[in-house]
Design a protein around this nucleic acid. Structure first.
Lengths: 343, 343
DNA sequence: GCCGCCGCTGGAACCGGTTCCATGAAATGT
DNA sequence: ACATTTCATGGAACCGGTTCCAGCGGCGGC
């Protein structure tokens, strides 16, 4: 359509002056600025970001690497990042990369090397040193969400502490027969989330003098509601494996467990206490006690932190870890255990 | 880093030749092509899409406008579109625009006018004529998902038919006391989805000679599981308003209803049949009878259709509506009504 | 009255590709 | 043998901005 040359011609100035007037860089008299802006408005001029970024190297766009879109935590983070980027005048280019794979190699080599973005936010993805280095070489800052990446500023919650707190909540209610149901260490998407929550659980159990690692108090589970439901049916269906309390690694798992328990005629919390982690919008409806982790806050902070790094051109604090607060919300899925019958 | 001029120099040819060799356009001898490609590989050359799009006008990027990210249908569509675009070598730039608002005006005027994309897919968004025209003027094709937009190729399911089918399923089981619980017509996100499903419901009831519009057989509800739960508590809690069957406008609503019913001691399906629409992954776990609408298929088709339009440079069939098939999946949340007691 | 600085402006180079056009060599047709 | 095509290649213009640099008028200082 209309280029800056047209604006300049209409305003009766040179391209250079028009550019300065519109971008606000360099000396322009107040009168000239008004003329140029008026001319631009008149012909509906919109600058081509392509042309600009060709010379400035800035694209006003941020790349986001994320392994899932449809899982709660990720979609919340995504939504909040989109909002924050929009507010700051940035575009968001989305790369949904399920797992380390040839697919992902391809994206890194091809898409990311084209540097169509000023920076990258990686959500819950365990980037390899190689991948981090590639971005570094391109001079593109990187901020992570969800777990430490070597040499990268990361925003996360303290998963070990959360798990410990959740377990301690159950312990403080008097439970001794507690199991943890969550993601397994071997799970490919593990970004230390699974293992950290497991670690926190074992630590709390250990401190309470209860059987921990190796005692069979952990069941691996897909990180979804049906995953929790399935494991719940198996574990609660057999009186020999049924505990009095469960710490679930996510609210969705916890809800799946609650549904399974209800179907088996097990009273929650009278017969079984359940606690989760997340602060999922469904938690309230299932009266689930949980630890809220505020993903939207994490996403927003990641964006602001990345943009700050970009705009100050400081390399940012590498290896810096920002730990965001979480909070325990007690509803009625947890209570003290039923006194042993006949006891 | 390295520009095409470096590649040309290393290969001992002119920039123009190097460009032809790498892009595959125009005449280049096989030998020269090999030399250039080898040189490019050697210095790790990656073309700058900015520079290329500056002259070709193509960005190899698609803009997506979507009102929600975290709701099931939308996240599924998004994920499938991302996948399809990646496969075809396109980037996806995401614009999450909740509702018609000044916010949205701003995005249209500012972001979209910068034409950083070759085309646009709008998911479940009722674009105004103005907005459609703006895109048209920019020469960017547009494909919609979820409801007809004037002058735009749209991919959708037949919501009226789905609702009719769902209702007929309940009727065929012998139910006569049926209510519909779903989004209200006044809901701002209505993209004819709500009203179409309501229309289909009333049509089926009408045909069966049962009370339809204006008979109080419809309850408005937020389009989420807690929304369904809340309405379920209210409607099922009062024996006077409790029907024998419910057609829920979405699976999430249906599941919320089932949870509410179970808590009230109402047997599903013996006391209450429930059918939804979606094919949500949780449906199986709640044994929910539903009509599957395959959002991933919709997303994939939208991408392929848009790219085809782009690559053939045909303006596409405007006002064309592609209706994708849906299918009824019968599980055990529906059955015949309990015979009237004392009857 | 002259020098130097400041504020403002225009010309031109540049970012990194693509494409038009001219040129020349080889292959084909008559 | 000569006129055409066809294929290959290089030079240069161009896409639409930004930025460097030179020039110029006005003003204050000495």
């Amino acid at each position: 359509m209309s280029a800056i040359a047209d604006v300049a011609r209409l305003a009766g100035v040179a391209k250079a002056t028009a550019s300065r007037a519109l971008s606000g860089r360099g000396y322009v008299s107040e009168e000239t600025r008004r003329k140029v802006i008026e001319a631009a408005r008149e012909i509906g001029y919109v600058a081509s970001p392509n042309a600009a970024s060709l010379v400035t190297g800035r694209t006003k766009s941020i790349g986001v690497i994320i392994p899932f879109i449809s899982r709660w935590f990720f979609s919340e983070v995504l939504e909040s990042m989109e909002q924050a980027l929009l507010d700051e005048g940035y575009d968001m280019t989305l790369y949904n990369l399920p797992a380390p794979s040839p697919e992902r190699e391809r994206v890194f080599d091809y898409f990311l090397a084209r540097k169509r973005f000023d920076g990258v936010i990686s959500v819950g993805v365990a980037l390899s040193d190689n991948e981090v280095n590639l971005l570094h070489r391109l001079g593109r800052p990187l901020v992570g969400i969800g777990g430490p990446i070597r040499g990268v500023h990361t925003i996360a919650i303290d998963d070990v502490a959360c798990a410990r707190l959740a377990t301690e909540h159950l312990l403080s209610l008097g439970h001794t027969d507690i199991v943890h149901i969550g993601g397994s260490k071997e799970d490919e998407m593990d970004f230390q989330v699974h293992s950290n929550r497991l670690t926190g659980f074992y630590a709390a159990m250990d401190e309470a003098g209860l059987p921990s690692e190796g005692s069979g108090s952990f069941y691996a589970c897909e990180f979804t509601m049906p995953g929790g439901y399935q494991v719940g049916q198996a574990v609660f269906g057999d009186p020999r494996t049924r505990p009095t309390a469960v710490f679930a690694a996510s609210d969705e798992i916890a809800i799946g467990l609650i549904v399974a328990a209800r179907e088996l005629g097990i009273q929650v919390p009278a017969d079984l206490s359940v606690i989760g982690i997340d602060g999922h919008p469904y938690a309230d409806m299932f009266r689930l006690t949980t630890i809220e982790q505020h993903p939207r806050r994490q996403g927003r902070l990641a964006v602001l932190s990345l943009l700050a790094e970009l705009e100050t051109a400081t390399p940012g604090e590498e290896d810096h870890l920002t730990v965001l607060p979480t909070n325990l919300v007690i509803r009625s899925s947890t209570s003290g255990p039923r006194p042993p019958h006949g006891g």
